[in-house]
Design a protein around this nucleic acid. Structure first.
Lengths: 347, 347
DNA sequence: CTTGGCAGTCTTGCCACTAGAGTGCTAAGA
DNA sequence: TCTTAGCACTCTAGTGGCAAGACTGCCAAG
């Protein structure tokens, strides 16, 4: 760590990159001998050994046990991703294939996101997930109170993204269908096109009062509005079975812990939450312990943002073993997110 | 199979039941010796051996290999479930615990079903899933056309179960917000409270025409109505990680095939689809090869129907290893489905 | 019909052993 | 000063043999 930039001279960097590359391919610790055999390094195995010892001392590599080859550490992967890896450019053919996946699909937000997640999982043979965009920045479009009976109904709040909230309600004072329709129309005339943040609770109560209706209806509508802007992001995921193909998850205890995390969804959301708020267009890469301690530290997460036509931001992401083909996956991920953004923009 | 009822005399039935019971508990093939030691059978191990040989010949038991104990066959489990097992009655305490799970929850259909599935998964330590009720039998409640721009909008169809369909639309002839609102009101006045089957396409077109609007709007509404009654059942599931705890799924190939099936959802739906249509209140039990060939034949499915306030039927189900505690799981499953039906009725 | 005894079979765990992969160190050469 | 060949050493993974244990099936006696 001390003389970092000095320690990582050109040759060491190349050796490190080759080790990471080879380990990603084979999942086996990489030894000096195999390295000289499979790659043109121009030096002997003994030299590689010396360099490997240096790289290990500097924290880029670790040795699972004394007579084994080397494996990249978190730092090793991080250096590889940030500085050594050459970016993969998606072939035109692959690009087109991704776009085709979006053609036949429905135009609904939820369907598009689910479709993107499935496509991504399939193309990468990895576990893929998406965090849906928050409604916060969206424009209020429409509220509709629907009459079911004298004392019960349904309230729906719509944003440009679609139905943002629906909830059944009861009232203590009887209402008619016409009263609810009238109230809905008044709301929409008053608040249509405003941002949620611009809708005052007092204004909502006034509208209800001016229609001669009980205040409880105002509370119902306010509740539904609050639910719409509430952080109602959901997580969509696909491809759990891909974990099983990875040797690092053949340990059942680990696998269980990962599956549990995936099912809870909260952890997945947390991985990308920070990135979503500070997000530029840059992909997010979290490697090993950067995700937390415990069994997740064998994993990495790649994530890129996508945008709706109203600039609401969601994240499309991959979760896999730390030993993942970062370049290729980042390319496919970015390609899919672009196509998703395009599809969402065209709606 | 020939002298079935003769072959399964009282003692043999008891021995079979005990073997099934013991195997469900231990997951180890049951031998004559362990059987006499752990249970009061009143006869010696040698006698048990003779009876076991008969039971195997009659197809109730199988032997994994020559020097191993016996394991129940599909027929063995089937006989156990249908004729030998004593039904488990849920303790009042457990009943109350299940009910409590539903108290704090939201009253929305989707939330209730998801909550029931999670609760069921947790209580049984098994994989649980639910098939949502179809809208077909539901009453049409409301249709709303929402104006986004001159040429674009959103149409929403509502049934008593909530929002049944929403889709964005474009129109070639410009419309105003008022026109869409007016049309919505006309639709609701005309069709409100009818069943979907009673709504004629020609009537929809007439309403649109009588408002002086383009026929394309009629097609849009008809499309949304069709989507609402379409067999839009979905499958909600919970507890994938419980598979990993079962020794029968420690084989990764098998596990993968099961996880894959679970993610596809279609297979889960198929397991209970038939039962859903012919359904009485009776629980459905499918054992091993009754589910199909391949890796599912190591599994069993338990399913019971639940009902909404409008008598739409969904299924609540468990999928686990064939070696599952049928009595206990059936009791918890039935209890949860009852609570779910109650909660849905009270909405 | 039941039962104890016995021979036979198959699995499982253990141990020792070997082959192989890989390392670090040293000393010689460039 | 850097590189390299050689060597001794370490650790793992795989193999074969062996003994223990768990069952069964069969037989003959009760």
């Amino acid at each position: 760590m001390s003389d970092d930039s000095v320690a990582l001279n050109k040759r060491r960097a190349f050796i490190l990159a080759t080790i990471v590359y080879e380990y990603i391919e084979t999942a086996e610790p990489v030894g000096s001998h195999t390295l000289t055999q499979k790659y043109r390094l121009g030096v002997s195995a003994a030299t590689i050994r010396n360099e490997m010892a240096e790289l290990e001392a500097a924290g880029y590599l670790v040795q699972p046990h004394a007579s084994a080859g080397r494996v990249p550490s978190d730092t090793g992967y991080r250096t590889y991703v940030d500085r050594l890896m050459e970016p993969v450019v998606l072939a035109v053919e692959d690009q087109r294939q991704i776009r085709n996946e979006f053609l036949a699909a429905s135009r609904e937000l939820g369907d598009l996101i689910e479709n993107a997640t499935k496509t991504l999982g399939r193309l990468t043979s990895s576990f893929a997930f998406a965090v849906t965009p928050a409604q916060q920045t969206a424009m209020f479009r429409h509220v509709q109170l629907i009459w079911f009976s004298d004392r019960a109904g349904l309230v729906i709040v719509v944003t440009a993204l679609g139905v943002a909230a629906q909830r059944n309600f009861d009232v203590t004072r009887a209402v008619t269908a016409d009263e609810l329709t009238g109230l809905s129309n008044r709301f929409n005339a008053t608040f249509g096109g405003k941002r949620f943040s611009e809708i005052q609770a007092t204004a909502v109560r006034e509208v209800v009062a001016s229609c001669g209706l009980a205040d409880e209806l105002a509370e119902i509508v306010l509740g539904a509005l609050a639910a719409s802007v509430g952080d109602e992001r959901t997580v969509v995921s696909s491809g759990t079975q891909h974990f099983l193909a990875q040797p690092e998850f053949h340990d059942l205890r680990k696998l269980r812990s990962i599956l549990n995390m995936v099912e809870e969804q909260k952890a997945l959301y947390d991985f990308v939450a920070e990135a979503m708020n500070t997000a530029g267009e840059a992909p997010v890469v979290k490697i090993g312990h950067e995700l937390g301690d415990g069994d997740v530290s064998d994993c990495s997460v790649l994530a890129v943002p996508y945008r709706t036509s109203e600039d609401a931001i969601g994240m499309l992401a991959l979760l896999g073993p730390r030993r993942m083909p970062y370049g290729k996956l980042l390319a496919i991920l970015a390609g899919t997110a672009n196509s998703l953004t395009d599809s969402l923009g065209q709606r």
